[in-house]
Design a protein around this nucleic acid. Structure first.
Length: 540
RNA sequence: GGCGGCAUGGCCAAGUGGUAAGGCAGGAGUCUGCAAAACUCUCACCCCCAGUUCGAAUCUGGGUGCCGCCUCCA
């Protein structure tokens, strides 16, 4: 539809491709031969590097997976048939070491952390991928790939039965890191890289840049797999896959030789993604392995780089104790995904203030329209060809088309909220078209005000939804019945005091309620609303 | 040492060469017993210097400062 393409029929969505170092129009491989400008019939193969499940997920994971969640949602909204694959790395030295420390098997540890990760993602309202392949399930595919690479002369064995990738066999090695295909430039860059490389232990490596596809381990090691490459004198090979091989193997198995999007954190550009490209392209002989390489920026914590060594990393669980998922998402989306982002209380607090106001407005509209909380989802415009007069939703698409400019997107979210607030208090919304059309569940008896509010609400929650905010959190409260009764009692006592113009007593009761962590709001119609964390829990 | 990124109001942050989005905080007002919420109004010549241009936050060169990758990390 027109919304996903510009006037001259080129795709409107542009993404920054690390491979070329440029902003590029998004054209999936599957678009060849398809009618132009109809994403609804085009497939998109999207792969995101998943977690290594050796510990609880941290802020870096949150930023990464929320970023690509927004892209996934957007591509689907535009009409692409997206197959989103996010792997789980469950074989790795870190997992082995951690399991040893804890006295459990690597499989147990991985399983536990995988479930913890899944729970975190759900709590953050990150959509599950279509497939979550696990590295250990693809050892056979890895062995096959390694053999294929060796057969093509791009890898070699060492006497202990390890296999290394021969970087010199790949003329364009370094193209991702350096963003160029120029052989002369790459040659120079690689020389610089080599001179800066740390000393490698393996004397048999032809070049310090060569990396392991397969690491031999002693036959006595329980955490190994049989390989076709025995050490000198042994009758059977034994070892573990190199770090990068898993992604190549899973991509090959699930998607085939080429994919559209490969995304992950910027720290993976080198060496992980560079090596993945090298081995995958050497394996299949087809390039590019991935057409678009997308990377999200780093996470800092209060101005410092978040890192394992600094010990300043916070887990998602810890963060969620303090801020809800919509706040975290709002905060992240105010920053462009490629820029570094700094987690600090001041910024999170600003996001929280904003999100609470957003929740409050939506609650008010839901109440006014007498909707059931669960009805919100069904009101969302989910098809980009059905935008009609949803002006802010249209603007959201335009913003996301520009390399996922979510900060601009939030501007439209905020504007939509402003419109709804105006409508709720009988003021004329600035956008005339919102008054004219009738959309969603419209009934003949709807008054102008009902229709306007409904239109404003649909525009707002559609933007809200497509940015991945959670509806559930708008209405989420946790308050016991006993507490509820106490509050009701207090509010009605205050009402009596107010009626008697006993302001001292009325204020005393209000302060008591405030002290318990509730907000109290007197409405124009004489009712009183009690809120907790910006969510209405009582209206008397 | 090699490569790359970023410098925008008190804070966070967008910005496609044409005269500075948005948010948070603040100030003034409307409403209100007061307060809160909501609404209205208000709050920046974009690190420095030079250049290109009719015109630059946006392009070029130089400087200063901060950060990252090159080692496991999303």
């Amino acid at each position: 539809m027109a919304q996903s393409t510009s006037e001259n029929n080129t795709p409107a969505l542009k993404l920054f491709n690390t491979l070329t170092g440029q902003l590029e129009p998004f054209l999936p491989l599957d678009s060849a031969g398809k009618p132009e400008g109809q994403p609804e019939c085009q497939k998109v193969k999207m792969y995101v590097c998943g977690p290594t499940v050796y510990d609880d997920a941290h802020l870096g994971h949150a930023r990464c997976y929320i970023t690509w969640d927004v892209l996934y949602r957007f591509l689907k909204f535009l009409g692409y048939k997206v197959e989103y694959v996010r792997n789980v790395t469950d074989v790795d030295d870190k997992i082995l070491n951690r399991a040893k420390e804890r006295g459990e098997t690597p499989a147990e540890l991985a399983e536990r952390n995988y479930h913890s990760f899944t729970a975190d993602m759900k709590a953050l309202n990150v959509l599950p991928p279509d497939k979550e392949p696990r590295a250990t399930e693809y050892i056979g595919e890895m062995l096959q790939g390694i053999q294929a690479i060796m057969d093509k002369g791009a890898a070699y064995r060492t006497t202990d039965g390890s296999v290394y990738f021969r970087v010199s066999a790949k003329a364009d090695y370094g193209k991702l890191k350096f963003g160029t295909n120029d052989p002369e430039a790459l040659k120079k860059h690689l020389e610089d890289l080599k001179s800066g490389a740390r000393v490698e232990v393996d004397e048999e490596k032809e070049s310090p840049l060569d990396f392991a596809l397969w690491k031999a381990v002693p036959l006595s090691d329980a955490n190994g797999w049989e390989s076709p490459w025995p050490a000198a004198g042994a009758d059977k090979g034994w070892g573990r896959p190199g770090w990068h091989m898993e992604c190549s193997a899973m991509n090959h198995a699930v998607f085939g030789e080429q994919i559209d999007i490969h995304a992950g954190g910027a720290d993976l550009i080198f060496p992980h993604h560079e090596n993945e490209i090298a081995q995958s392209e050497a394996w299949t002989g087809h390039q590019p392995f991935a057409k678009y390489w997308l990377h999200n920026g780093f996470v800092n914590v209060s101005g410092e780089k978040m890192s394992k060594s600094l010990g300043n990393f916070s887990t998602i669980k810890k963060l969620l104790e303090r801020y809800d998922a919509n706040t975290i998402r709002y905060f992240l989306l105010t920053n462009h995904y490629r820029m570094p982002v700094d987690f600090n209380d001041e910024s999170l607090q600003a996001a929280e203030n904003r999100v609470k106001k957003m929740h409050r407005t939506i609650q008010a509209a839901v109440k006014f329209l007498n909707l059931d909380n669960t009805q919100l989802g069904s009101l969302v415009i989910k098809d980009s060809s059905d935008l009609m007069q949803m002006t802010q939703l249209k603007k959201l698409i335009a913003a996301l088309n520009e390399d996922m400019n979510t900060a601009q997107g939030l501007k439209h979210l905020n504007y939509a909220q402003g419109q709804l607030n105006l409508a709720l208090q009988d003021q004329v919304p600035l956008d005339e078209e919102l008054k004219i059309y009738s959309i969603g569940v419209a009934y003949p008896e709807d008054t102008d005000k009902v229709r306007i509010i409904k239109n404003c609400l649909i525009d707002l929650i559609s933007v809200f939804y497509h940015l991945g905010f959670s509806f559930e959190l708008i209405f989420k409260t946790s308050i016991s019945n006993l507490e509820n009764l106490k509050l009701q009692d207090a509010v009605s006592q205050r009402k009596t005091a107010k009626a008697e113009k006993n302001w001292v007593e009325a204020d005393r009761i209000r302060n008591e309620i405030l002290a318990q962590g509730y907000q109290i709001l007197d409405n124009k119609d004489g009712t009183t609303t009690v809120e907790k964390d910006g969510v209405e829990i009582l209206r008397v």
